[in-house]
């Protein structure tokens, strides 16, 4: 692990998240019998139910004991465990370089991605990574070995950022390279054209992926507590403005709230988990909040 790579996964962060447990909301298919339940019923140790035999079923799975008692053919069905395949998408565009605290948004996003990778790899789930701005800047294929973490962290060291274009193309490309269903985790400030974003999310959902969005925002972007005459110079060529921030604060906060509200609503409509994270928040708190939320959701979906 290089010095630069280590900065996204510091020992204190690891100790904070070590106790966390990642569980997928949906049962996804997987190779390993891990902690994640599979939607496929097959050979396993955990019996689920009997079903009447239909032509085509494997005759090896007929329960002869039941036949001896009822004179009818029933087959036994078991629940299979599988491993989790998680694709992490980290935004490294120019707007993510903004930050007023200890970490800028990109650094914070990388920390989120690193922490999740660590967790997932520790339970032998498969993790892939895509770093993007206007195009895919770095990619790490899925892997479940512990040593895979170094490759992930190295990829997070993105080159010079550029402004984002249509995120749909990015998502489409990610979907194309991931033929198995799994979790897609997007870590971004989402300062992208909204229609492309939602089209991409819809596409991922249709392909059976479970999508999580960590919406990373800086405190000043959410609170806008600037004072004094200020010239705001937009990142990603968003223009510039000389103004008295306090006089525009209310309007700005309304616009931000409208943006987040729209994200929340449309993500909910697409069954996409959406979580806004402040860069000033502790990472464990954000992840714990999110994961607890997901564990709660799993029970309702299974029943």
């Amino acid at each position: 692990m290089t010095r630069d790579s280590r900065r996204f996964l510091r020992p204190e962060e690891i100790s904070r998240i070590a106790r966390l447990e990642v569980r997928a909301r949906h049962i996804v298919e997987g190779f390993l019998s891990g902690l994640h339940r599979s939607p496929y019923l097959g050979q396993s140790v955990e019996f689920v139910q009997h079903r009447e035999y239909v032509p085509g079923d494997d005759v090896r799975r007929i329960d002869w004991k039941v036949w001896s008692k009822t004179d009818r053919y029933f087959i036994k069905q078991y629940e299979e465990d599988t491993n989790l395949r998680t694709a992490l998408l980290v935004d490294c565009s120019e707007s993510m370089r903004f930050g007023t605290g200890a970490l800028n948004k990109y650094e914070y996003a990388c920390t989120v991605a690193a922490a999740m990778s660590y967790l997932l790899l520790r339970q032998q789930d498969s993790v892939g990574l895509t770093v993007f701005d206007d195009a895919i800047r770095g990619r790490v294929d899925f892997g479940s070995r512990r040593s895979h973490l170094l490759a992930l962290l190295t990829a997070l060291d993105a080159p010079d950022p550029a402004q984002k274009t249509d995120i749909y193309e990015i998502l489409e490309e990610v979907a194309a390279t991931q033929n198995r269903r799994g979790i897609v985790v997007i870590v971004s400030d989402l300062f992208v054209p909204r229609e492309g974003l939602f089209r991409g999310l819809r596409m991922l959902r249709r392909r059976g992926h479970d999508v999580l969005i960590f919406h990373v925002m800086d405190d000043e972007e959410l609170d806008f507590s600037y004072t004094g005459t200020t010239r705001f110079e937009g990142l990603e060529e968003a223009g510039e403005l000389v103004c008295d921030p306090r006089s525009l604060r209310d309007g700005y906060l309304e616009a931000v709230e409208a943006f987040r509200s729209e994200l929340r609503k449309r993500c909910a409509a697409e069954m996409v988990d959406f979580q806004t994270i402040r860069t000033s928040e502790h990472l464990d708190a954000a992840l714990a909040h999110y994961l607890n939320h997901r564990i709660g959701m799993r029970q309702s979906i299974r029943s």
Partner: peptide, 13 residues
Amino acid sequence: IEFAAMEFLLASQ
């Protein structure tokens, strides 16, 4: 100040 969320600031302005 270099600012990311210019979209909203410009809308407010």
